[in-house]
Design a protein around this nucleic acid. Sequence first.
DNA 1: CGCCCAGTTGAGGACACTCAATAGCGGTGG
DNA 2: CCACCGCTATTGAGTGTCCTCAACTGGGCG
Lengths: 234, 234
Amino acid sequence: MKTVPIRVAWLGEQDCRDCAVRNSALFAGLQEVDFGELHQPIEDIILEPPAVLYRIGERGRVVFTLRRGLVKLVKYLPDGNQRIVRLLRHSDTLGLEALLGQPYPHDAIALTRCEVCTIPVSLVERLGHEQSRLCHELMMRWQQALAEADRWLAEFSTGTARQRVARLLLWLSETAPGQPVPLFGREDLGAMLGLTTETVSRTIAELRRNGLIQEMPHNQLTLDQSELQRIADG
Amino acid sequence: MKTVPIRVAWLGEQDCRDCAVRNSALFAGLQEVDFGELHQPIEDIILEPPAVLYRIGERGRVVFTLRRGLVKLVKYLPDGNQRIVRLLRHSDTLGLEALLGQPYPHDAIALTRCEVCTIPVSLVERLGHEQSRLCHELMMRWQQALAEADRWLAEFSTGTARQRVARLLLWLSETAPGQPVPLFGREDLGAMLGLTTETVSRTIAELRRNGLIQEMPHNQLTLDQSELQRIADG
DNA sequence: CGCCCAGTTGAGGACACTCAATAGCGGTGG
DNA sequence: CCACCGCTATTGAGTGTCCTCAACTGGGCG
């Protein structure tokens, strides 16, 4: 059995050469010839929200690359409240802790429909011995995660409710500026921003009334980027 | 010239074999024999607050190991306000970004008198090619930094002012429970906790009135650990 | 149809922020 | 040695934002 509790669909083992995130994924640094090594079971699965990738405290034997979708990393406070410490998106890596034999430090839960590669730790270790480039690539991953963590602290836990919401919406639109962004439950939004669901609801309602955001089908939003940026900057 | 702007004292090159943080430092995983490689200029310097280790945007060619003291990592918001995203302490590593050729993403500023090892990136790279254990050690560093970052978000940017202050004081006493903890400027405390200086001042004054903390010489505090823990847990 | 859950909206109050004045502390210079 | 200055911490009053508790709405689904 794997550590992936909910497997909605299974795309089958597939060659990373064809991966859509080839250039930004973990094995991007490998030469073509190295892919001969990849006859390991790298599985590609699809998760429907709110599927659980892993639970806090579990010791997994796989790391994940997120090919599509959004995943939240959740911690729990002494009083039982949840706090979302980060979101992961396209080409981000999850569960690097498994490489160090450490238990996962969060719950990882899909916020949208996700496409995820599961890569056995044993494979990474084997390749890592010969491929110092893989080692470098892994460090890049960690560094990126750290930069995001710092950004979350600085942007999403600081300022007024309106500023935080605006910044989060802009963050969500970063990958594809101008495109509609998915909006999720008020409870999740609150846990990301350190606000209550009611405050988030009110703030979003106000942005909508002022025309800074517009509802689209499928819970998608179109943003007034410049105006939101003005709010975000205070 | 080095990237260290303020060098108050220089202890001279020294063999990492004798380092006080040998077992927890970056090169802990290396065998005795490997130290033959270490005829590189690993410098050991002392910084007085508020000395600057590095500035945001700089591209350094050294990583740092903190042997003694506290260092703050500072980001700046669009409105110019600062936000301290993390503190580093005994045996923590700074500036890992340099290993990836990236600019430092924060200002790193000494909060207390600090003793710091500066390790040239070139040295780490050279050793890393042969020593996969060093690679592993580096990943541990990154993971630890990430765990701390998440913790800061969850603990110090959530809850009431009293809870945040209590958690920060407990965090400061973690390395040496029961020992007095250093207290720094209200402005820094505010930037760590996402509060104003006045609120921090009021909160600390109240804790003092209630006997949960006691002033000591040299800006040191003794804590009522259990009672503070009760507050921290809400 | 009616339940259930998520989102919205409202009223009231608590908490933290703002602005402002005061107090304490260390350094400097007369 | 003391007076003065500058800086930080403290304290106060008033305001605003966000939280709490509660009622209401609306869509999805059995």
